[in-house]
C-alpha cells in the first residue's frame, strides 16, 4: 500500500557562531499511495530539508517518518530521489547509470540490462544508452536520472526541483512525460518546486509552506482532471490563489 506518514517533524540547523535556524517546525502529513504531492514555498521554508529527511539523507531532531509503518532513518532503494543538480555519475554511460542501483542490489548482469533497457525505453532514450552524461542536454540528463531512480522500483519517488535548471519548453515536456510515467508505474511522487505553474499542472495535492520556521501553511486539493489545460479558468484561479498565499508566506 505504501502509506507515507510524517509526524511532527522538526529540524534545527546550528550555524557557526551559535545561531540556529529552525528549518522545519512540527510538520505532519499523511500521504496516500500513488499520490502526487507538490511542495511549494518561499526559499528557506524547509521543503528540501523535508524531502531529504524522507530520503533518509538527513535526520530530523524530532518526529517520525514512516513508510508502511516502517521507521525511516537511513536511505533505502525503496525511496528513489531525483536531485536538482545534475547527479548522474559522469564516468558511467547512460546505461550504466541506470544499472547502478540494480548492481548494488547484487542482481545478475543479464537481468540488470533487461530492466535498464525497459526504463531507457520508458524515458525514450534507447539510442543514447552508450553516451556519457556530458553528451546529453539538461532535459535528457534529468530523464536518465528519473529512469535511474525508477529502475530500483521505489514505492516513493522524491523529486527536488528536478526541472528547475531547464528551459520553459523542456520543462513543460518533461512535466507531461512525468505524469505519463507516474500513471504507468503507480508510484507515489513528492515533488518540490518553486513554480506555481508546475505545482498546479502536476499535483493531486499542493502543500504550501511558510518560512522561518518552516511550517505547513495550507494543503490544497487539486481535483482538476488530467491532462490539465495550463490556461483554463480553473487553473488560473488556483494559480492566483496560490500566488497570494505565497506572497503572504513571504511577508510573514
Amino acid at each position: 500500500m505504501s502509506r507515507l506518514l510524517l509526524e511532527g517533524i522538526s529540524r534545527v540547523f546550528e550555524k557557526e557562531g551559535g545561531q540556529s535556524t529552525q528549518a522545519l517546525d512540527n510538520v505532519s502529513l499523511d500521504i496516500k499511495a500513488k499520490e502526487f504531492v507538490c511542495f511549494i514555498g518561499p526559499s528557506g521554508c524547509g521543503k528540501t530539508t523535508l524531502l531529504r529527511a524522507i530520503a533518509g539523507l538527513d535526520t530530523p531532531d524530532s518526529g517520525k517518518i514512516t513508510l508502511d509503518n516502517e521507521h525511516i532513518t537511513v536511505p533505502d532503494p525503496r525511496r528513489g530521489m531525483v536531485f536538482q543538480e545534475y547527479s548522474l555519475f559522469p564516468w558511467r554511460t547512460v546505461m550504466h547509470n541506470i544499472t547502478f542501483g540494480l548492481e548494488m542490489q547484487g542482481m545478475g548482469k543479464k537481468e540488470v540490462i533487461e530492466i535498464a533497457d525497459k526504463y531507457l525505453k520508458l524515458v525514450g532514450l534507447e539510442q543514447f544508452k552508450n553516451s556519457y552524461p556530458y553528451e546529453l542536454s539538461g532535459g535528457m540528463r534529468q530523464r536518465v536520472a528519473i529512469a535511474r531512480a525508477l529502475a530500483n522500483e521505489p514505492k516513493v519517488l522524491l523529486m527536488d526541483e528536478p526541472f528547475g535548471a531547464l528551459d520553459a519548453q523542456t520543462r513543460n515536456i518533461l512535466q507531461q512525460e512525468l505524469l505519463q510515467i507516474w500513471e504507468k508505474k503507480g508510484v507515489t511522487i513528492l515533488f518540490v518546486t518553486h513554480s506555481v505553474d508546475e505545482a498546479v499542472y502536476l499535483a493531486d495535492r499542493i502543500v504550501v509552506m511558510s518560512a522561518r520556521p518552516g511550517k505547513i501553511k495550507e494543503v490544497i486539493n487539486v481535483d482538476l482532471l488530467r491532462p490539465r489545460d495550463r490556461t483554463s479558468h480553473e487553473v488560473n484561479t488556483l494559480r492566483e490563489r496560490l500566488l497570494n498565499m505565497l506572497a503572504e508566506a513571504r511577508d510573514q
Binding site: G56, P77, M81, F83, F89, W91, R148
Partner: peptide, 30 residues
C-alpha cells in the same frame, strides 16, 4: 567529490563506505 554523487549513490542503495569509495569517490577523483 561532489556531495550529490555520494547522496545519489546512497539513495540508490550504495551505503557502505567500501562501496561508496569504490563506486563513487574513486572514479570521481580519478
Amino acid at each position: 567529490v561532489p556531495r550529490v554523487y555520494v547522496e545519489a549513490a546512497k539513495v540508490l542503495g550504495c551505503m557502505k563506505d567500501r562501496e561508496l569509495i569504490r563506486y563513487v569517490a574513486l572514479p570521481s577523483s580519478l
